[in-house]
Simulated scan of single mutants.
Amino acid sequence: MPPALLEAFTAEMAAARAPGPVAQRWRAAERAHILSQPWPWPHARTHGVMLRLALRDRDVRETVGQLVRLAVAAPGSAAGKYPDGNTGRTRAGLTTPMPIPDDLAALLREAGVALRP
C-alpha cells in the first residue's frame, strides 16, 4: 500500500478496534475494507476485525458471512476479483459493487488503483 493510503487505512482500522459506539466501529471497518480490497493481507485483516465485531455483537449471520469472506478475501484481492466499493458486510452481498465515498475514491486513484465503473 502506498504511504497515504496506508495512513488512512491504519486510521480506519484503529477506529474500528477502539472502544466506542458499535455503529462508529462498523463504519470505520467498512471504510478500511474499501481501502484494503486491492491488497490481500490488509483485505484479510479487515475481515478479521469485522469478524471480531460480529462476534462481539453476537450476530450469527454476520459472523458466518465474515468467516466466508475471511476465506476468500486474500485470494480475491490477489486475483483482482473484488467488487469495488463493497463495504465487506454480509448484508452488502459478497460480489455487489457499491459507490465509493469520494474521499476514499480519491485516495485509491492517487494510489494508482483503477476503479471500475
Results as ranks from 00 to 15, higher is better:
A23Y: 06
T63L: 04
W39C: 08
P2M: 13
I100N: 04
P21Y: 05
A79I: 01
W26V: 14
A74F: 06
V72K: 07
D84R: 04
T96W: 02
G20I: 10
S36E: 08
A11Q: 11
M1P: 06
A8G: 11
D103L: 05
L35N: 12
H43R: 09
F9M: 10
L104D: 01
T90P: 02
D84H: 14
P42K: 14
L53W: 08
R52K: 13
T90C: 10
A74C: 02
F9Y: 15
V49E: 10
G85P: 08
V22L: 05
D57F: 04
A106E: 11
W39M: 10
A78D: 05
R31P: 05
L108P: 05
A74E: 01
A28H: 13
R31A: 12
A92C: 06
A111F: 02
A29L: 12
E12F: 08
A15C: 03
L53G: 10
S77D: 04
L115S: 09
A73C: 07
R45W: 11
I100L: 06
A79E: 06
L53Q: 11
A111G: 07
L51K: 10
R25Y: 09
L104H: 09
L67W: 00
G20T: 07
L67G: 03
L5R: 15
P38W: 07
L94F: 13
D59Y: 10
A79C: 01
A11K: 03
V113T: 02
K81C: 10
E62F: 04
A73R: 08
T96S: 04
A18P: 00
D102H: 08
N86E: 14
T96Y: 02
A4R: 12
R31W: 02
T63N: 04
G80Q: 03
R17C: 00
R31Y: 00
R58C: 08
L70G: 15
P117Q: 15
T10A: 15
R45N: 14
E62N: 10
R69N: 07
L55Q: 15
I34M: 10
R17D: 00
L108C: 05
R56T: 14
L94G: 12
T95K: 07
P3W: 03
A71H: 03
R91N: 04
G112I: 09
D84E: 11
L35M: 09
S77W: 02
T63V: 07
A114E: 13
A74D: 09
R56N: 11
L70K: 04
L51C: 10
A29Q: 10
A4V: 05
P42A: 14
A78E: 03
G112K: 05
E30G: 09
R116E: 13
R17A: 01
D59N: 15
A8M: 08
Q24T: 12
L67E: 01
R61G: 12
R89A: 13
M13G: 03
M98S: 13
P42R: 14
G88R: 03
Y82D: 02
Q37G: 01
L67Q: 03
L55P: 00
A29S: 14
P83T: 03
H33I: 07
M1E: 11
R91P: 02
P21A: 02
L67N: 02
A8P: 08
V49P: 00
P117E: 15
A79R: 14
A74V: 05
